[in-house]
Amino acid sequence: MNKKLDLFKNISLWPVVIYSFVLILLPLLYILFLSFCETDYVGGINYHFSIVNYLTIIDSTYLLIFAKSALIGIITTLICLVIAYPFAIFLMDKKEEVRNALIKLVMIPFLTNSLIRTYGWIVLLRKNGIINNGLTSLNIIKEPLSLMYNNIGIIIGMVYTLLPFMILPVYAAVNKLDPNLIKAAKDLGANKFHVFKDIIFKETISGAFNGSLMVFIPAIGYFFISDILGGGKQMIIGNLIKDQFLTARNWPFGSAISIFLIIVTFLLVRVYKKIGGNIDELGGM
């Protein structure tokens, strides 16, 4: 190997290594360290070893928040799956230009700040918002629906914000599928439902799981959606962590919940591996 090239390789790698070390690994280690400290209840930290933060997590109030977050996350994930698959299958036999154009449309929202887009939903969802006014003036409903400041609002916001993260991996997986497999299944007597369940879904399960992780994890953490569309009173894990750091100023407890969330993520990947998933297809997580 050329020595100059080796040198260049080493130098060009350093920025990434430094970036990952300073901005990802160090803060994470700091969070891990903090999670084993104690709060002094006035915003400071007592630096002595303790597992009290982790014991607090098991408290029923917090468990309830976790359970609710998980439920919102699961519902969001399922809705995204239900929307992403028909879309990906619809694109399968389309021309490449059509496919590319529609996938670009999916990605366009990324160009705008998601906070602003979430505020945009208020105009649509509030009591005298566009949806409610539209439906009442068409006499479809008499009373305006409660579409925000509740769980429905949070789920609508989550699905809207996170849907691209489901569509892209699902589309990538479905697009890679050999069309002959579907033809073969039809040829062997499978109806549309079986073609989807036994062939398309099973062959693209890694894409579905990948998308599900990318939707589920943010869905339990995106506090701003819960703040804006849930009216701040609907707590999810994301709000809880944010509040510990910014409002309650209990950094050790906030750190402990963060570490807990990371562990849950790793467990989910383990589960995927257990049920026979290919880790490489998740991008080497």
Partner: peptide, 13 residues
């Protein structure tokens, strides 16, 4: 009728 495809189209999973 049944078809045998050029690339066999066996279900990989």
């Amino acid at each position: 009728v049944n078809t045998i495809f050029q690339n066999f189209a066996l279900f990989p999973h």
